[in-house]
């Protein structure tokens, strides 16, 4: 792959990959590392991918694998598939709350969602991938993606409600317009 084609691949996906990594790793330095590593792996191995149309899925899959490989499993991981997670009903105040929140609040709430739900939920909100593509990227069945989206959204609503209730102050993330990237 030429340097120009590689730069185009970076420009097309690095912002979305960063948001995905930030949601997974919960801190900006590790998110930056994950994105760097993903493209680095592409530079060394990705050129073997024959179907250029699959580059996006390959990048997200690789980033997710790198995240799973690098993180230490902690006690929290044991509750990831906890079937007792309750699904709360979407209420009108949830939408009002979403209107009031800023980018930092949204990401902070997303980062509290259990990891198994957080990965598909973040990809869903990035809107670049259909649920079929999310299933491919995360290497899980389609039904599992739907289930995790549904339960992840319930957890996210709960987290946003709790944040508002506690008046939690969130350090704002740099916005696209300020950072010069999108």
């Amino acid at each position: 792959m030429s340097g120009e084609a590689f730069a185009q691949l970076v420009d097309a996906h690095y912002a979305a990959l960063y948001r995905f990594a930030l949601s997974l790793s919960r801190n900006a330095p590790d998110a930056g590392d994950l994105v760097q590593q993903t493209y680095f792996i592409w530079a060394t191995k990705g050129h073997a991918l024959r179907d250029a149309g699959k580059a996006k899925a390959w990048l997200f899959t690789t980033l997710y694998r790198e995240f799973l490989r690098g993180r230490r499993r902690d006690a929290r991981s044991s509750s990831l598939e906890d079937p007792s997670v309750s699904e709360t009903e979407l209420a009108a105040e949830d939408v009002d709350r979403a209107v009031r929140m800023d980018a930092g609040t949204a990401m902070a709430a997303l980062q509290t969602v259990d990891e198994a739900f957080r990965a598909p939920l973040t990809l869903f909100y990035l809107q670049d991938m259909s649920y079929h593509e999310i299933a491919t990227a995360l290497e899980v069945p389609i039904g599992t993606v739907m289930s995790r989206l549904s339960r992840g959204k319930a957890q996210l609503r709960t987290a946003l409600a709790q944040q508002e209730k506690s008046g939690l102050k969130v350090v704002p993330f740099p916005r696209a317009a300020e950072g010069g990237a999108s």
Partner: peptide, 10 residues
Amino acid sequence: IASRLAEIAP
């Protein structure tokens, strides 16, 4: 939520 996440810049 999607529009808020899109505001986060690398």
